[in-house]
Write a protein that binds this DNA or RNA. Structure first.
Length: 489
RNA sequence: GGCGCAUUCGUCUAGCGGCCUAGGACGCGUCCCUCUCAAGGACGAGACCACCGGUUCGAAUCCGGUAUGCGCUACCA
């Protein structure tokens, strides 16, 4: 029987989840869902010094927002728990004891100061930096002496001095490492916590992970992990290392590249489906043309074989474009619901809160295809909500239009509008379009003046729809205001 | 410095020996549509497939070297 796929996403709670980590989580998740496997979330909080309060909750929120659900892990439990490494310390210590007992690992009493001096000297002499294995073959008496001095040792893996270790990677193929360059890495730190390497191997085994899918930066330590699996007598999982995500300057994506935390994207008004789709395309592709895909499509088509090996630069421009695509795909209801918080927050203070939902529902369809970020919605719709328009009166004067001509056109339009009974877009167009001809004006000249009068802007949604939403009273008042402005010019 | 990996339009990518005078997308430009802005449509500019050799009747695709970039080289993950 074929083993059921089990993968895990194992973030450290050292701060916000950034898009690189999310991409890793996404590929893990897509692969798992594609194969009908189990996706496990594990919190790797083994660095007590870097732990950030509240980070775990934030990670969970972000994953939930994106729809990356986990089958085992914090809050949902599972039979291989606990899923937080700081609660599994005894298991790592037990593994360490076993390794030391069988001679595969040893206590190292070297101080961090000594290691630093050693490294500095090695670098100075242009030698490869690394631990010199001083404690590897300590005599029993020497060890007893160190213990008596009260030094708490770290435990290091005794790696083979010769031979080679091959990593079979689904994405990279076979990569061979000489054992001689593999260090005696620390397994258990002096504070009793395991290092990533130990905790990872022990947990992946205990949780029966079948596929270790993680970022490329782990490639180099994978041979060590294999050695560890072997020493512990564990079966080796399959590995797949994902290419890195880079910033515009080709360096590892980080804070200085602008928004990188998934929360920031959320606050800017990116949709989760955009993030999923876009991130899926960074290092993976379906074919030579398909780009916009639903999450279901991605699950259906995802395969590690089509993941590339080259690092990708995160392009905000394309992300924005794609978000526009997804915003346009939203139903009017969804768009309104999702925009509402942005409006409440982004509209000027003088606008009365709470906003009228029914009015918001009328306004938003007019800007849906014009927004690329939800955050742009308040700015795009502001004049629908404010009482007083603020604009440069010069804008009232369109191309080839004098102030006199504009006043005249607006007056006539106003008179007709006052008599207008049905104030819907179609009726308004039926009335106003012929009026332009009647006044011997181009449609653009009449409509342009009205557009500015009614919105204070030169770029807006279609005039008649806008007037219909604004309503008769407001439309007329704004035309009056425009006429007053023109009188003062 | 050492080890590993990578290198196709500015960017994301297709390509796995002949279909490639290299395809798609973002961005950019022009035009169409049009009451403006978007959206949509059409067209275009943009890649000597990093470079140099080799294998082959034939190479972006295979091999070797060089260059460049990236990752790792912590009692961080």
């Amino acid at each position: 029987m074929i083993q059921r796929v089990r993968t895990r996403f194992a973030p450290s709670p050292t701060g916000f989840l950034h898009v690189g980590s999310i991409r890793t989580a996404l590929f893990d998740w897509l692969f798992t869902r594609h194969n009908g496997g189990a996706f496990i979330l594990r919190i790797e909080d083994t660095d007590a010094t870097r732990k950030v309060g509240g980070a775990v909750g934030a990670i969970l929120d972000d994953l939930r927002w994106l729809g990356l659900d986990w089958d085992e892990g914090p809050e949902v439990g599972g039979k291989y728990g606990p899923y937080i490494q700081s609660q599994r310390l005894e298991m790592y210590r037990e593994a360490t004891r076993r390794l030391v007992a069988q001679g595969a690992a040893y206590n190292c009493y070297c101080s961090q100061e000594r290691l630093e001096v050693l490294r500095a000297e090695q670098i100075k002499n242009k030698r490869p930096p690394g631990y010199d294995r001083r404690c590897r073959n300590l005599a029993e008496a020497e060890r007893a002496q160190k213990e008596k001095e009260g030094i708490t040792p770290v435990v290091r893996l005794k790696t083979p001095l010769e031979g080679q270790t091959t990593v079979h990677d689904i994405i990279w193929g076979d990569v061979v490492f000489k054992n001689s360059i593999i260090e005696d890495l620390v397994l258990l730190k002096s504070d009793g916590y395991p290092t990533y390497h130990l905790a990872n191997v022990v947990d992946d085994h205990d949780m029966q992970i079948t596929h270790v899918i993680r970022a490329e930066e782990w490639m180099s330590s994978t041979p060590c992990h294999i050695l560890l699996y072997n020493a512990l007598g564990y079966e080796i999982p399959k590995f797949a290392h994902l290419p890195m995500l880079l910033g515009k300057d080709r360096s590892k994506l980080g804070k200085r590249h602008g928004s990188v935390s998934i929360l920031q994207f959320r606050e800017l008004g990116y949709l989760p489906e955009t993030m999923i789709n876009f991130l899926a395309l960074l290092g993976w592709s379906l074919d030579d043309k398909t780009e916009v895909m639903t999450c279901e499509d991605l699950v259906k088509n995802f395969s590690l074989e089509r993941v590339s090996k080259t690092a990708a630069i995160f392009d905000h421009e394309k992300l924005k474009w794609m978000n526009g695509v997804y915003i346009r795909k939203l139903s009017h209801d969804d768009f309104a619901r999702q925009s509402l918080p942005f409006l409440e927050k982004g509209l000027p203070n003088e606008v009365k809160r709470p906003l009228s939902i029914s009015y918001v529902r009328q306004v938003l369809p007019l800007v849906q295809e014009r927004a690329r970020l939800l955050m742009e919605v308040p700015e795009l719709t502001e004049y629908f909500f404010t009482d007083q328009l603020n604009y440069d009166s010069q804008l009232l004067l369109g191309k080839d239009m004098t102030a006199e001509l504009t006043v005249w056109a607006l007056r006539v339009a106003k008179e007709r509008l006052e008599k207008q009974v049905s104030f819907d877009a179609a009726s308004l167009e039926l009335m106003l379009r012929p009026l332009a001809g009647e006044l011997k004006l181009k449609a653009g000249q009449l409509f342009g003046a009205l557009r500015t009068a009614v919105s204070g802007r030169t770029a807006t949604p279609p005039l008649f729809q806008m007037m219909a939403v604004l309503g008769k009273e407001c439309t007329l008042a704004r035309i009056d205001d425009a006429l007053r402005r023109l009188a003062g010019m």
